[in-house]
Amino acid sequence: MSASVTPPTSPRATSAPEPPDGRSVLDPADVGRALTRIAHEILERTKGGDDLVLLGIPTRGVTIANRLAARIRAVEGLEVPVGSLDITMYRDDLRLRLPRALETTDVPGGVDHKLVVLVDDVLFTGRTVRAALDALSDLGRPRAVQLAVLVDRGHRELPIRADYVGKNLPTSRTQLVSVRLAEIDGSDAVVVGEAS
């Protein structure tokens, strides 16, 4: 069983919207601290991480899930399974755009009776998480599902909230928030910019 999932590297999958006049709100050290804190909180609230599965939502959610698993390993010596959950086929805006290339769905060990922590980079409208919950229910029946995000920028359109938040970031609806991670983008940062 693989404890780490390599995120897809196709350009299609990694094209995050780039704010034209981006203002960095988290630097690499901030990102690192936020993830360490989330890792600790997960361990605390799951009482040691039994039956824990970290399911990242591609692309950056998977990278973050891998980092959280590495921190948990460092702290507790515990190997937490990390998976990837593609939500493309469950999106509610499929009809509004060209069909997207699919990302990987790979859940080592399955989700039945597990405590699944969904991991994504930014929590915004909540629609992605809604799709992820639907996708998850087609994979099996977890004991419980929690949500971890690096950034919560508000403006929810569905009754969804995160259990673990790296940084609450007040934004206007039109702003663009972009999470950059070293594995994909060369360095860590969270950048806020105005839509062009």
Partner: peptide, 20 residues
């Protein structure tokens, strides 16, 4: 072919259905 690869994984699951 890439898309079919992901579709093939669906065949390995218990619920072989997508709402797409």
């Amino acid at each position: 072919l890439d898309t079919a690869e992901e579709m093939a994984r669906l065949g390995e699951r218990s619920i072989k259905k997508l709402p797409t």
